[in-house]
Design a protein around this nucleic acid. Structure first.
Length: 195
DNA sequence: TCTTCGATTGTCT
DNA sequence: GACAATCGAAGAA
């Protein structure tokens, strides 16, 4: 994807990332999946966003240019991957919550065994495990094909396949942020019929 | 299928 | 010192 794709309103980026292909390159081979669930985190005003208390060493990448990866560690054991949205100076990102595996199934199976196949990539920390995404990829450019992690055009998803709900795992966030319908999720059963 | 609960450590107050 | 943009096992139904 070109950089302009990411330099837009965070909610637009979150919606448009549904159906795109997330590609991880490991030792020259591709491990990838179609994105079908995302969440938008939009600026310092958004009290669910990591940038709510200003710039820190951890969230610095979010303040940079759109089209880069923001990878962080949480719950003492999990990595999460986001696409930075917007332009330099405006902290915003879109969390990738779930993907449908397409390439590199062998790699994914090896990472996720003995978990059942349907649960390989249906959660933000699950897909980072499946694609071997860690803090080493924090800040990488998602717009170039030779990057170890990047986004490609994938499928066009009809609006009718997508629903939006409040974001997950932000129970202690004050309103109105807790209830903002900034989570986008596509109907996986319909998506699967494309293959 | 649903609910509960322990795991485990970087980051910020 | 508290908490976190979660996961997966175990037990109940």
């Amino acid at each position: 994807m070109n950089k302009g794709f990411f330099q837009r309103e965070t909610l637009t980026v979150a919606r448009q990332l549904i159906g795109k292909l997330l590609v991880r390159t490991v030792d020259g081979y591709r491990v990838s999946g179609i994105i079908y669930e995302t969440e938008a985190y939009d600026g310092e005003r958004d009290l669910a966003c990591h940038a709510r208390s200003g710039k820190t060493a951890r969230n610095a990448v979010m303040y940079g240019d759109g089209g880069h990866a923001y990878v962080y560690f949480t719950y003492g054991m999990h990595w999460m991957v986001n696409c930075v949205a917007g332009v330099v100076g405006y902290p915003a990102a879109v969390l990738i919550r779930a993907i449908h595996p397409i390439e590199g199934i062998y790699h994914i199976r090896r990472q996720r065994t003995p978990i059942k196949e349907k649960n390989w990539c249906n959660g933000p920390a699950k897909l980072t495990k499946a694609l071997s995404i860690t803090n080493k990829l924090n800040g990488v450019n998602l717009c170039v094909r030779d990057s170890p992690l990047h986004i490609e055009l994938g499928l066009s998803i009809p609006d009718g396949w997508i629903s939006s709900t409040p974001r997950i795992g932000i129970q202690n966030t004050p309103e109105p942020w807790k209830s903002k319908p900034w989570r986008f999720i596509a109907d996986l059963s319909k998506l699967k019929k494309q293959f």
